[in-house]
Amino acid sequence: MNKKRFVTFFIPVLAILLGLIVGAIIMIISGYDPIVGYTQLWEGIFGDPYVIGETVRQITPYILSGLAVAFAFKTGLFNIGVEGQLIVGWFAAVWVGLSFELPAVIHIPLAVLAAGIAGSLWAFIPGILKARLGVNEVVVTIMLNYVALHVTNALIRGIAGKDTTDRIAETASLRIPFFEEITMYSRMHGGIFIAIIAVIIIYFILQKTKLGYELKSVGFNQDASKYAGMNVSRNIVISMVISGFLAGLAGAMEGLGTFEYAATKTGTTGIGFDGIAVAVLGANHPIGVVFGAILFGGLKYGSLNMPNPPAQIPSEMITVIIAIIIFFVASGYLFQWLYEKFSKKKGVK
């Protein structure tokens, strides 16, 4: 038991260390100083109140998009459409934020809810297609990402008449003046609380409720679940709808917190796709997802500081280094597997 703890703790740490070392080798080969580079990465994440605030801001949507991917995965569904669900959620949140005049206590929940529902509806389509007709959800969700991107672009241009909407009403904003004050005007916002609450609720649903049990059961074995009297189709749809709701919330974080407006996009935001990596890093566990999001968001935001002097590492280079670190962390399972294989062989002898 103790040994197992030891392994589960040390393998990810070892993987991160290895990733950092390989990243350092690449920096040395390309003629950059890894110590300065990593120092700046560190300072870019924890250096002062502003970057700490911005790092939290970056982590917030990652928690929710990672959670969305992980939740669908528990039911055996690959929700590649988090990206599209996030974009429609973003748009819905901003629309509510712009078009209503309400006190903050009603306006904020309404806008957040609208984002979640928009995401749910967007995820309901692949869910029902999968449940009723057995259509592969991967293909449908990928295609719906493009539909979401271009439909919202057209709507933004159509409604606003320009490339960005106006700013949402202050009563719908997630920004908290206190956070702005202590973090030197970073865009850190109250959405982090929503994300944490979502993690707790999802943990509760999966671990403590009948619904969660059924969803996981369907994920393990559809036929057995059906035989046991569970409604597989219904569970698939519910799983997608909840996953979409979480993705929509991630969109609300961007629309009500980070940006406070919606702009036409030249491409997808990447938060939904990165959510897949976050879910994998977190082993598809709600609490694990939080750590995955912290690692991913931290590296992503901190790396913005690496092109500044004295390190002056070009951003392409940084993308490579960050990708390698993530790669090693994700392949932590490989180390675990190797370790277990080693120990078994010993046992046989």
Binding site: V7, A24, M27, P34, V36, S343
Partner: peptide, 29 residues
């Protein structure tokens, strides 16, 4: 025995890290 192997691996990683750190130091000036 098993623990020995793992700690060996950790030591290798750490030592490699230190060597690389030393390499990098030269450019500071």
């Amino acid at each position: 025995m098993k623990k020995g192997k793992l700690s060996f691996l950790i030591i290798v990683v750490l030592v490699a890290g230190m060597i690389l750190a030393a390499c990098g130091g030269g450019d500071d000036k």
